[in-house]
């Protein structure tokens, strides 16, 4: 027992969490409802459409955005997932990712814009983002479970917190990197701050912002698997099953499905970023 026992940081944090649970429950209920609604929506759409139709649609989308190679990859990849009987879990995981990414962007891009406009905001936001990114991913699961119990909702929340930083960082960076002369030109022609943002800064920063979106998606995908531990469902659940029951086949198959989904999402969003990139 040390003499600094009275400063138990862990205990303090626990205290804060408990206080929030008691006094801010309505906030968490509202968030929970929003997440559940969106997630349910995506999931029911993705699962309502016949799998084969979706496979063809995904492949066509990839072909259109990222070229023929990705189109073929998408077709074969998603057919393989079907063959492995992991279609349902994959679509669940995809819904979790999409939901988390939507919220991450809704929060992250405006915060990034705000940070780009003010050094003070940037100085406050930056250490928070560092903290969010370096804290081991599993740690997010604890407060998520405490506030939102078990299931997909805390899974989405933990995922969104984990994947938020690149959206903020790259939006901030992208806008700060807009050449001074472009900003001056917009100002000199009488643009208001709002016109400056919408007509000059955001379009010029778009490739960088899309790189942030790409990273957010990739981070969500990795976190969604971890969130399987708190019952988020989807492929994470299968991976967990593989680990806990030492079933190599289940573990390998679900891992493979995650890789396919990851490559698909990554290449698609990267191609989207490149197509907007003009020197």
């Amino acid at each position: 027992m040390s003499m600094f026992d009275f400063i138990s940081i862990g205990k303090w944090f626990e205290g804060i969490i408990n206080w929030l649970r008691e006094h801010a429950a309505f906030i968490f209920d509202t968030i929970s409802m929003l997440v559940r609604g969106l997630l349910g929506g995506f999931q029911s759409i993705l699962l309502a459409v016949p799998a084969l139709v979706l496979v063809v649609a995904f492949a066509a989308l990839a072909w259109w955005i990222a070229g023929r190679g990705m189109g073929i990859f998408g077709l074969l990849g998603f057919l393989l997932i079907m063959q492995m009987n992991l279609w349902r879990q994959t679509m669940q995981t995809l819904s979790l990712v999409i939901t988390a990414v939507v919220f991450a962007l809704i929060i992250g891009i405006p915060v990034g814009i705000w940070a780009s406009k003010s050094d003070k905001v940037q100085n406050v936001v930056r250490p928070i983002l560092d903290f969010m990114q370096t804290l081991p991913a599993f740690v997010y699961l604890i407060p998520a479970v405490l506030f939102f119990r078990l299931g997909p909702v805390p899974g989405v929340i933990a995922t969104l917190i984990f994947s938020l930083p690149p959206a903020v960082r790259l939006t901030n960076l992208g806008i700060r990197q807009v050449p001074l002369e472009i900003k001056e030109a917009a100002l000199s022609f009488g643009a208001t701050p709002r016109q400056m943002l919408i007509k000059a800064e955001l379009p010029v920063a778009l490739p960088t912002i899309l790189a942030g979106v790409n990273q957010t998606i990739m981070l969500s995908l990795s976190m969604v698997v971890i969130a399987g531990m708190i019952g988020a469902g989807g492929l994470g659940n299968e991976v967990l099953k593989g680990i806990t029951q030492l079933r190599i086949d289940v573990g390998f198959e679900s891992g493979l499905a995650i890789v396919i989904l990851a490559i698909y999402l990554d290449r698609l969003t990267q191609a989207l970023g490149n197509s907007t990139q003009k020197k």
Binding site: P179, E181, A185
Partner: peptide, 15 residues
């Protein structure tokens, strides 16, 4: 009343 022309053009690359 006034318009400006810049050394490095200041054109919007996306337009």
């Amino acid at each position: 009343t006034m318009s400006m022309v810049f050394q490095n053009f200041g054109l919007l690359p996306n337009r």
